[in-house]
């Protein structure tokens, strides 16, 4: 998928061109020096974008699948605890305060998305009864607070420079991706995905409900906290570079459930790879469908939503 997307785009590259660039960059012997514009397009623009797309898609899908298990509800997605709105607020704030400097946008988006989940978690912990519902409520509360704050920032932002940047960021895009972005955001994404993959069987057990999971010998408070921590790391790492990309965390795990069943031992790795493929695919569409690029977040929802309606129709009455 990643390799394939090197060929796709408005600047035509032949198979030989791409091969030449890859070979040259990977230091293979006997390679002629490719044209500079070919290097630029294939290596500096398309490759990092495809890699980042794959990682973002995988992160969102894996954390979506995990949270669905944790909350015992297949309608949960990676944004349930307020990650996305926190990130949106952080990014908007950075755009206004620091004049849209990429590093600060990432940093603020990341910090505020973590903060949003922490807040939702604290609200959820405060009430000791039915903590799952309280966590969801906490997420709803935090999301709405940050959404209002985003609106406030939009209102006070400079309408010619800052407002468009905010709006574009919120639509989600991989357009700014360069190799250094991958390096920054890969750490939390990989850590989160690795953690979720490692504890994926515990997520099965947590989905039995708090009391049963405890009786089965799981320290629920610790296991739940850790699962939320890992999925937040993965999602925050993803949204801070890509902006808000909807539906991947909801729909991809469902496709996985239909393909391999509900056992998280296989479901989470499956979601990882499906999410990666889906986002690279959609990003290629976003780059090529029209002359100007369509923001990625719009396309994922436009494709994801009808598909989800179809899925709901198909799974109706199957005990979900």
């Amino acid at each position: 998928m990643v390799l394939g997307s090197l060929f796709i785009g408005r600047y035509p590259l032949t198979f030989a061109d791409v091969f030449q660039v890859l070979g040259y960059k990977l230091g293979l012997p006997n390679m002629t020096v490719p044209e500079a514009v070919h290097i630029n397009v294939a290596w500096d623009i398309r490759l990092p974008r495809a890699i980042l797309g794959a990682m973002v898609g995988a992160s969102l899908a894996a954390s979506g699948a995990s949270l669905q298990g944790l909350f015992r509800n297949p309608l949960v997605s990676s944004g349930i605890l307020g990650v996305s709105s926190g990130a949106g607020f952080g990014a908007s704030l950075a755009i206004i305060l620091f004049d849209n400097r990429t590093f600060y946008v990432y940093l603020f988006a990341f910090v505020f998305s973590i903060l949003a989940v922490a807040l939702a978690y604290i609200i959820g912990l405060h009430y000791k009864t039915t903590p799952t519902i309280m966590l969801v409520l906490g997420g709803v509360i935090v999301s709405s607070i940050f959404s209002s704050l985003i609106s406030l920032l939009k209102y006070i932002a400079d309408p010619y420079e800052q407002l468009p940047s905010i709006v574009f960021w919120l639509m989600g895009s991989l357009a700014t991706a360069r190799f250094k972005d991958i390096l920054i955001s890969a750490i939390p994404m990989i850590a989160g995905m690795a953690g979720l993959t490692a504890m994926r069987w515990r997520i099965n057990i947590l989905s039995m409900g708090d009391d049963e999971a405890q009786a089965l010998g799981v320290n629920v408070l610790f296991a739940k906290g850790l699962a939320i921590f890992f999925s937040t790391l993965a999602t925050a790492g993803a949204v801070c570079v890509s902006g808000v990309i909807g539906w991947v965390g909801l729909v991809i795990p469902h496709i996985g459930r239909m393909l391999v069943g509900n056992d998280n031992i296989v479901l989470i790795p499956t979601s990882l790879s499906l999410g990666a493929c889906y986002l690279v695919l959609v990003d290629n569409l976003a780059r090529t469908l029209t002359g100007a690029e369509i923001p990625l977040g719009i396309l994922t929802s436009l494709i994801g939503a009808p598909f989800f309606i179809y899925l709901l129709k198909r799974t109706k009455g199957r005990g979900w």
């Binding site: 298990g69 099965n204 057990i205 989905s207 089965l216 010998g217 069943g261 509900n262 005990g319 979900w320």
Partner: peptide
């Protein structure tokens, strides 16, 4: 309450946690 349609064997395996 059955949250997901797990296979019977997967449910029994949870006893090994």
């Amino acid at each position: 309450e059955k949250p997901f349609p797990f296979k019977v064997i997967d449910v029994v395996l949870m006893g090994r946690a």
